[in-house]
């Protein structure tokens, strides 16, 4: 499977033949988004016993060009939930504005202090994405939503541009699905295992995942955002750096470029 955002929602090349980009002309009738332009790569997240840890790097790519290197792809909602965005950055910014508005409306609507929790937020966003796909005008994103549910248990769920939703003790979008998920699943293979993982352990695992992704995902960056959500609120650090990298494995890799094996 091709896990780059460019391939999301596309007819599969191996099934329908090579992609024909000839329709991409500058003039003509109004068009809906047919493909993402500036994109963010993986978002990774896993639950631990009192909350959820999430990370995403700070890169926005323009195709293979590392275009913007300081784009924050995790945002908070109502100081109780976090959302990580993979895929198109302009659609992310649209959702960001939309969520800000939603948050303000919610806060004004209720004196008693009802707020949307992570589950409510995820349901809302997945409906939004599903309705947009049903209009053939998708928001080209894959989201992870994390926080606590109504019983104050850790909540983590995903929603993508087709409106597909799922929840799991650990989740990752894009390349993270291939590279980070297997690492995280070693620690949280099922819901029961979450209770045995501490905050520090979870952060450690997530940092390790970000490192693996930086090694192998060519559209990634060593500067990233890390968010931890617990009942005490959200801790969002937006300028983390990958530490203790080791590229020792690199010179053992043969068969690329002008190299001969």
């Amino acid at each position: 499977m091709d896990h780059r955002p460019q391939a999301w929602g596309r007819p599969r090349d191996d099934v329908y033949g090579a992609y024909d980009a000839s329709y991409l002309q500058a003039n003509g009738p109004n068009q809906h988004t047919q493909s993402p332009i500036v994109t963010g790569t993986s978002v990774v997240a896993m639950k631990f016993k009192d909350g959820v840890v999430m990370a995403a790097d700070n890169l926005a790519s323009y195709g293979s060009l590392a275009r913007f290197t300081d784009v924050k792809r995790i945002r908070t909602f109502a100081d109780t939930s976090i959302i990580g965005f993979g895929g198109d950055v302009s659609d992310m910014q649209y959702l960001d504005r939309h969520l800000t508005e939603l948050g303000i409306d919610e806060a004004y609507q209720s004196e008693a202090g009802h707020t949307l929790n992570a589950r409510n937020l995820h349901k809302y966003l997945s409906n939004l994405l599903y309705n947009r796909r049903s209009k053939f005008d998708p928001l080209w994103n894959h989201l992870l939503v994390a926080g606590l549910d109504e019983e104050s248990r850790p909540f983590l769920a995903a929603a993508d541009l087709l409106g597909t939703t799922f929840t799991s003790p650990s989740l990752a979008t894009g390349f993270g699905g291939m590279l980070a998920q297997p690492i995280m699943r070693r620690y949280v293979p099922d819901e029961a295992a979450v209770a045995g993982v501490s905050r520090d352990q979870a952060v450690e695992v997530i940092r390790e995942c970000m490192k693996v992704l930086f090694y192998r995902d060519a559209r990634s960056l060593d500067s990233y955002s890390l968010a931890i959500v617990t009942k005490d609120g959200v801790e969002l650090r937006e300028n983390e750096k990958l530490e203790q990298q080791s590229w020792a494995f690199a010179d053992r890799i043969k068969g690329y470029g002008t190299q001969t094996v």
């Binding site: 091709d2 460019q6 090349d13 191996d14 099934v15 090579a18 991409l24 988004t33």
Partner: peptide, 30 residues
């Protein structure tokens, strides 16, 4: 926009698929 790698291995249930662009009108969309 056309950098999807063509997987040449076996596909699961779709054995016969066109591997090249066919002549004539073809539309790709979401």
């Amino acid at each position: 926009f056309s950098q999807n790698p063509v997987l040449n291995g076996p596909n699961y249930s779709f054995a016969e698929v066109p591997k090249d662009a066919v002549d004539g009108l073809r539309e790709h969309r979401f």
